[in-house]
Structures are given as C-alpha cells and as structure tokens.
C-alpha cells in the first residue's frame, strides 16, 4: 500500500465524496486489494461517524454525512450502536479514571488547561528550591549539633585542645543588666570554651544549653553538658559557627527524673 497517498485528510474527503473520479477509483482499488488500506478507510469512516456523533462536523459535511451514512435502516442502526459504545466509554471513564501513572493522573487535568501550566511549573520549581535550601540547612544544623555534642562530651571537656580560647560568662540578671563579653575571631582560634557561672543553689547532673543570636528565634545549636563541682558549666563551641553579632545562651538544669530546672541566660558578642 502506498502509505504516502492515503492520508487522513484524503480519506475523509473520499468518504465525503470530495475527491475526483480518478482519485476515487484509486482509493477503491486499494480498498479492494489491500487489507491495510481497507482497514484505514474503515477506520477513517469510524472517525467520521464519531465526529458526527460529537456534532463536530461542519454543516456542509454533516449534510453529506447524513445523505450517505444515515440513510438506510442498517446505517441508522450502526449509528445507534456507535452512539451506545461512545456513551458507555465516556460514562465508564468518568466513573473510573483510566489507569495511568500517578504523574499522568496528576498532569491530566493540567493538560487541558495549558494556560495554567507555566505558573504551576514555576510554583513547583520554587517549592523544589525551597525544599532543597531547607534540607541543606537542616543537614548543616545536624552537622553542627554533632560537632558541638562531640566537643562537649566529658572525655573531650577533660582535654585541653589546641587553638582554643576561653571566656567566662556570668548569668544575665536584672542587676547585672546586659553587660556583654566579647570574642574576637582570630584565624588561629578554632574553639571557644565558655565557662558559664551558675548562681543557682540547686545542682543538676546535666544542663541543656541553647545558643541563639540575640533577637532571633532560630536555634544555632543545642547541647547537653555535664555539670562540674565548681559552680561552672564548661561549654565549648566551634568558632566557625559564630558570625559577628550578639549571642545568647540559655541553660536549664535537667534533674534525674527528667524535670527541668529554672533557666539562666548568658550573652556574648562576636566581632
């Protein structure tokens, strides 16, 4: 069969009697001798019937269609059966969405509303970027948590580490006000060891420390540190997590029964 010749358009023109005599004969000879050509003509006829049932034909084509394909009782029955098949399929598809991939199902309603596709795609892209940034920050946070926890284990706290600076801090009270101690960042200092004086009478085996920038809600790091017998809590921080600005450390004693003691706050600044 000459596939080039039997186009959909040509077949439709043939079915609507819009081709000349020679073309008609050529198509009909193919129809008689080539089973694939026959199937294509009949499939095209089927498409034409479908368009008629959907009322998609032009007025002229509809008139031609009716004069050819809706004339005899057999043809009319054929149309009725076709109508029933279509009606069943559409109804069935509405009741049970056709199985496809989750993505296809998700995208299906969007395809018919292509105008929304670009803004939706942009929104999805933004959501992905935000999720990526958030995930990155969470991973960074957990890496800092791990590093600080390792620095503040009893074994680590008992060692004098190189490139370490010390800073004594008193708790902030109404009387002492917000007097700040300052750390100056230097290239040879990697760790700062804070000696947090506690003035509470109650002693706890463990203290939970929370580090934040002053005026911000976001936590920089939290850690549990063991208490010492000299009314101080030793708390080590890596310098790279501290940028210029003011910081607040809040500590709460954790009792053996899990209850939390009153908080004490310390502040310091970095430049």
């Amino acid at each position: 069969m000459d596939e080039e010749i039997l186009t959909d358009t040509l077949l439709r023109q043939y079915l609507l009697r819009k081709v000349d005599h020679e073309e008609r004969q050529r198509i009909e000879k193919l129809f008689m001798t080539d089973s694939l050509a026959r199937d294509r003509v009949l499939a095209a006829e089927q498409e034409l019937i479908e368009d008629y049932l959907e009322d998609s034909l032009t007025t002229e084509d509809k008139e031609i269609f009716l004069s050819h394909y809706a004339r005899t009782p057999e043809q009319q029955r054929k149309l009725r059966i076709n109508k029933s098949i279509k009606h069943w399929a559409v109804k069935e598809a509405q009741a049970t969405p056709i199985s496809s991939s989750i993505w296809s199902r998700f995208l299906e309603p969007l395809r018919s509303r292509s105008a929304y596709l670009v803004p939706i795609a942009v929104a999805i892209l933004i959501a992905i970027v935000i999720a990526y940034v958030w995930l990155n920050r969470r991973m960074e946070y957990w890496a800092i948590q791990k590093e600080v926890a390792q620095l503040n284990t009893p074994a680590s706290l008992s060692q004098n580490l190189p490139q370490m600076a010390s800073l004594w801090l008193r708790p902030v009270t109404a009387r002492s006000g917000e007097a700040q101690n300052q750390i100056t960042k230097q290239s040879d200092i990697r760790i700062v060891e804070l000696f947090l004086l506690t003035i509470q009478k109650e002693r706890y085996p463990i203290y939970h420390a929370v580090v934040q920038r002053v005026g911000e809600k976001e936590l920089i790091v939290t850690a549990d540190v063991e208490a010492r017998s000299d009314n101080t809590i030793h708390f080590r921080l890596p310098v790279h997590i501290l940028t210029n600005g003011s910081y607040r450390i809040r500590i709460n004693g954790i009792a053996t029964d899990g209850s939390t003691g009153p908080a004490e706050e310390y502040t310091f600044s970095v430049d």
Binding site: S56, I85, K86, V90, A93
Partner: peptide, 14 residues
C-alpha cells in the same frame, strides 16, 4: 475492553 474504553473516553478536542 480497556483499549476501547481508553480510546473513546475523551471527546472533541481533548
């Protein structure tokens, strides 16, 4: 049956 259903599920432009 599934193929027929899928094929005729949509109408007109869709």
């Amino acid at each position: 049956r599934k193929l027929i259903l899928s094929y005729y599920a949509k109408e007109k432009q869709a």
